[in-house]
Amino acid sequence: MIEFQHVSFAYEKDRPVLRDLSFRIERGEAVGLIGANGAGKSTVMKLMLGLLQGEGRILVDGTEVRRETLGEVRKKLGFVLQNSDNQMFMPTVYEDMIFAPLNYMVSREETDARVDAVLERLHLEYLKHRHNHRISGGEKRMAAIATILAMEPEAILMDEPTSALDPYNRRLVINIIRELEQTRLITSHDLDMILDTCGRVILLSEGRIAADGPAEEILRDRELLEKHRMELPLSLMGR
């Protein structure tokens, strides 16, 4: 579904952020992208969405990400931003949720049905008509996730979906992610969450893939994780 072929990228000349990155994510797979701060996780996602252009080829559902194909590619990918303040730009949660479907010419009835279904699933009915300026950081994060779910993309990219969430909402989001049938790529420092949601993990370090394999294996490898400035998930500590 998503494929990187020898992708390199630098924000500033001579300071490469990603070096010759290649990987492939199959349809329906759930992949955790982990790495220390500044490892390049968000950058990988932005490249996929065509927000940044690097060297090499990126394919989304067989289509190469290029200027001419951006519309097509972006329709297939739903992106939950690291900072929800930048994600929610309409006055109310509801208006934000209908934004994408209506832009993609989904009918109003269908859109409204989707919105209600997603809000119910996330137990967020009470947020529907609230103003984005007046909800808490965690509520905004939940609303941002709802916004993307209502878009019903083929793949969902989430940049730190559980940061700012209380344990209840975190658990809710984990369960939702597990239930989704779409392709999922999730970055997080919350390795317990990654362990709960992803079958596979890609470990980024200094712009390269340091490890790529089953989550159970990589997240248990204390030596590997510590070498790349990370720690074992709490649930695996002391075992």
Binding site: F79, L81, D85, N86, F89, I98, F99, N103
Partner: peptide, 23 residues
Amino acid sequence: DRAQELYSSMLLRGYHQHFHYVD
């Protein structure tokens, strides 16, 4: 920076200078 990201977020959700999303 933030305005840029906000605009990206609009683009990513299909904004193409049409206002289908407004009733």
